[in-house]
Design a protein around this nucleic acid. Structure first.
Length: 591
RNA sequence: GCCUCCGUAGCUCAGUGGAUGAGAGCAGCGGGUUUCUACCCCGUCGGUCGCAGGUUCGAGUCCUGCCGGGGGCGCCA
C-alpha cells in the first residue's frame, strides 16, 4: 500500500493553473515513493486519446525491474487521481490515460480568470537579464536581418519583464571603427546640412556607398580618412563633434523605425561599440595579468581550447593586432565584463545571427578562462537564420541590394490596408489606417517569430497576411471577433469577468485546457528562448476558440450557459491579447 | 580539409524519448454549415521523417558514419 504524505504537495505548486503541471506535481511524491524516496519524473504529456497521459511508469518499472502495467495499476489504486480525474485507465505497455473531471478543470479555471496575470506566476528567482539586440550600424541602412534581431529580442524582453525579471535592453549599435574616418570626411565634403537632410529622409545607404566609392577611387580621400580615424581615436574634440552628429542623425532615423515597428527600444537603450573603447585597455591588462595572452604572428592573442583553424592548429581570439589595435573580440570582452560587473547581469542574451556563433563562443570561453563569466551567470547566443526570398536565396531587392527595413514596414502596412478595405468596407478611414498598422506590422513580426529562429525562413507577403493558417492576422482576427460579440450585444466585458465557467461541450473543455496551459507555454518558450513556441500556443488557442465559436452558440444560449460562454470568450480574448503582446503584436478590437 | 547548423506531405512549417493513427496550414478533390464579420466542421488526396548503422522496453527526437545545403575557420565589425 502506498502512502502519500499530503505535506509533499506544495500548496502553491498545486495551484498551478496548467492541469498537466498540476497532475505532475500531484504524482511526484508517489513516484518518489515507488523509487525508494528518489525523485522520478511521472512524465505527464498531452494526449490525443485523453486529456493527458502518464508515461513515467514505463521508465520507472524498467529501473526497478517491475512490470510497467502493474506499476501503472498501483498508481490508479493509490486513489491519488480521484480528485482530478473523471476517468483514468492503464493502456498499452503501461501508459495511464487521464480524463480530467469537469469540476477539476472548472475550479482551476475559476482561480485563473480572477488573476490579472492570467495564471502566470512571477519568477521565483528574479534575475537581471541583459538583452543585446537590433544593433544597426551608424550611417548604414537597417535591413531585414535587423528585423529578426529586433523582433526576436523585443519579444524576449517582454517575456522576461512579464515574469518579473529586471531587463536591461542594450542596442549595440556599430558606432565606432575604421569606416568612421571616411564617413566623417564625406560628411565634411557634402556639408552637414545636406547630409542631415539626406539621412533624415532615410538615405543612409546612399551616403555610405558614396563614401565607400570615394574611398576606393581617391588616394587623397583615403589619406584624409586614415588621418581622421587617428583624430577620432585620439579624442580630437572637433572630430568628435562631427562623429556625434553622424551618430545622432542615424539614431533619430533608427528611432523612427523602432516607433513604426512598435518595439521597446529607445535612445536610453543605446550601448554602442564606442562605449566599450575606454574599457578595452583595462580588460587587456587583466588578460595579461591572468597569464592568458600569447604572442602569435605579431599579434597578442588568447587560445581558448577546442577551436581550430583551417590547418588544424589552435585558433586564437585576437586581443590586439600586429599594429597594436584592439579588435572587435576585445570590445566584446569588455562588453561582457561591463554587463557582469557594472550591470550585475545574471543572464546575457545575444540576439545575433548564426554566422557570429563561433566568434561569440570564443569570446564567452575566454571570459570563462579569465574568470569573468562564472556559473550561474550565463551568456547565451540567441542565434537566428537568414530571411530568404522566394528563390530560397538571401532576400534582395530588385536592384540586388539588401531590402531596406523601412520600405518593408511601409509595404506591410499598405498591403494590410488593402486587405482590410476589401474585407471590411464598413470600417472608417481613420480606423482603417490604425488597424492597418497593427495588422501589417503584426503580420510581419509574426511571420518572423513563428518559425524556429535558428532556421532560415522564406519571406512571403501573401502567406503572412492571409487570414487563414498560422498568421498574425488570423490571431488578431480571433481576438477582434470576440470583441465584436460583446460590442454587438452591448455587453461590458468586465461584467462577465470572474463569472463561473461551466465546461460541458468538448470544445469548451478543449478551450479551457488550452487557456490553463498558458503558463506552461511561456515556460517552454523561455527555456530555449524560442518565441515560435509561444506562437504555436497562440495559434492553437485561436484554433480552439474557432472550434468553440463554431459549435457553441454564445448569445443565443440560455442562462447560465450564456454568461458562462461569454466569460470563457472574454478570458480567451484576454489571453490572446496578452500573448500577442508578449510577441510585440497589438490586437485590434475590430478589423 | 576542420568545425557548426539545417534536411519531416506538392508548398510553408510544427513536433517535451512514448502507443505501427508522424501533425497543422496552404494548394487539390468531395460534402456540410454559412448563424456572433472574413470563419468553421467532416471526408479525401498526399510521408522510405536525407541515407545506413547503433543505444533503448520504445527513436522524427539521442549517438556514430555517410549524402545534400547554408554558415564559420587570424589581424574588418
Amino acid at each position: 500500500m502506498v502512502r502519500v504524505r499530503a505535506a509533499c504537495i506544495g500548496h502553491n505548486r498545486w495551484r498551478m493553473s496548467d492541469p498537466l503541471a498540476s497532475l505532475s506535481t500531484l504524482l511526484e511524491p508517489l513516484f518518489a515513493n515507488f523509487n525508494g524516496g528518489v525523485p522520478a519524473d511521472p512524465t505527464v504529456r498531452p494526449s490525443d486519446r485523453a486529456d493527458a497521459q502518464i508515461n513515467g511508469a514505463l521508465a520507472l518499472a524498467k529501473r526497478l525491474g517491475e512490470n510497467p502495467r502493474d506499476l501503472a495499476q498501483q498508481v490508479l489504486e493509490s486513489g491519488i487521481l480521484t480528485d482530478v480525474a473523471a476517468d483514468a485507465e492503464v493502456a498499452g505497455p503501461g501508459f495511464i490515460n487521464v480524463t480530467f473531471s469537469s469540476s477539476f478543470l472548472e475550479s482551476q479555471l475559476a482561480a485563473v480568470v480572477k488573476d490579472k496575470r492570467l495564471g502566470v506566476a512571477i519568477a521565483a528567482e528574479p534575475k537581471i537579464v541583459v538583452v543585446d539586440y537590433s544593433a544597426p550600424n551608424v550611417a548604414k541602412e537597417m535591413h531585414v536581418g535587423h528585423l529578426r534581431s529586433t523582433v526576436i529580442g523585443d519579444s524576449l524582453v517582454r517575456l522576461h519583464e512579464f515574469l518579473g525579471h529586471t531587463v536591461i535592453r542594450e542596442n549595440h549599435i556599430g558606432d565606432w571603427g575604421r569606416p568612421f574616418g571616411m564617413l566623417i570626411e564625406h560628411l565634411l565634403d557634402l556639408g552637414e546640412d545636406v547630409v542631415s537632410d539626406g539621412l533624415s529622409q532615410g538615405d543612409l545607404d546612399g551616403f555610405y556607398k558614396q563614401a565607400n566609392t570615394k574611398f576606393k577611387d581617391s588616394e587623397e580621400f583615403q589619406d584624409r580618412a586614415r588621418d581622421r580615424v587617428v583624430l577620432l581615436q585620439g579624442g580630437d574634440e572637433a572630430t568628435l563633434v562631427l562623429w556625434r552628429r553622424l551618430v545622432e542623425m542615424s539614431n533619430s532615423y533608427f528611432q523612427r523605425v523602432y516607433t513604426k515597428l512598435d518595439v521597446l527600444l529607445t535612445d536610453d537603450d543605446l550601448a554602442g561599440e564606442s562605449r566599450y573603447q575606454p574599457l578595452m585597455e583595462g580588460v587587456y591588462a587583466r588578460l595579461d595579468s591572468a597569464g592568458l595572452l600569447r604572442e602569435d604572428a605579431g599579434a597578442m592573442v588568447v587560445f581558448p581550447p577546442g577551436f581550430k583553424n583551417r590547418d588544424g592548429a589552435p585558433l586564437p581570439m585576437i586581443a590586439k593586432s600586429q599594429t597594436g589595435a584592439f579588435m572587435y573580440a576585445t570590445s566584446d570582452l569588455a562588453c561582457v565584463v561591463d554587463r557582469v560587473e557594472r550591470l550585475d547581469a545574471d543572464l546575457m542574451l545575444y540576439v545575433i545571427g548564426t554566422p557570429q556563433a563561433q566568434h561569440l563562443q570564443m569570446v564567452f570561453e575566454v571570459c570563462r578562462m579569465a574568470g569573468w563569466l562564472v556559473e550561474p551567470t550565463k551568456a547565451v547566443h540567441v542565434g537566428f537564420g537568414n530571411v530568404l526570398g522566394a528563390d530560397r536565396k538571401m532576400m534582395r531587392s530588385r536592384a540586388g541590394d539588401s531590402v531596406k527595413l523601412a520600405d518593408l514596414l511601409d509595404e506591410a502596412v499598405e498591403r494590410a490596408e488593402v486587405a482590410i478595405a476589401e474585407k471590411n468596407p464598413d470600417i472608417g478611414h481613420e480606423e482603417r489606417l490604425v488597424v492597418a498598422n497593427m495588422v501589417g506590422i503584426g503580420a510581419l513580426k509574426y511571420s518572423d517569430l513563428s518559425t524556429e529562429r535558428i532556421k532560415d525562413y522564406v519571406f512571403d507577403w501573401d502567406r503572412m497576411l492571409a487570414f487563414e493558417g498560422n498568421t498574425g492576422p488570423y490571431l488578431q482576427y480571433a481576438h477582434a471577433r470576440i470583441c465584436s460579440i460583446f460590442r454587438r450585444a452591448r455587453i461590458d466585458r468586465a461584467s462577465v469577468r470572474s463569472e463561473h465557467i461551466i465546461l460541458n461541450q468538448p470544445q469548451e473543455r478543449g478551450l479551457a485546457m488550452r487557456l490553463l496551459a498558458y503558463p506552461s507555454a511561456i515556460a517552454t518558450t523561455l527555456d530555449s528562448f524560442s518565441p515560435h513556441k509561444l506562437c504555436t500556443y497562440v495559434y492553437e488557442l485561436a484554433s480552439d476558440f474557432s472550434s468553440f465559436y463554431q459549435e457553441c452558440p454564445i448569445l443565443k444560449s440560455p442562462e447560465p450557459m450564456r454568461t458562462s460562454r461569454l466569460a470563457l470568450a472574454d478570458f480567451t480574448a484576454q489571453v490572446l491579447e496578452h500573448s500577442l503582446g508578449l510577441l510585440g503584436i497589438t490586437a485590434p478590437e475590430q478589423m
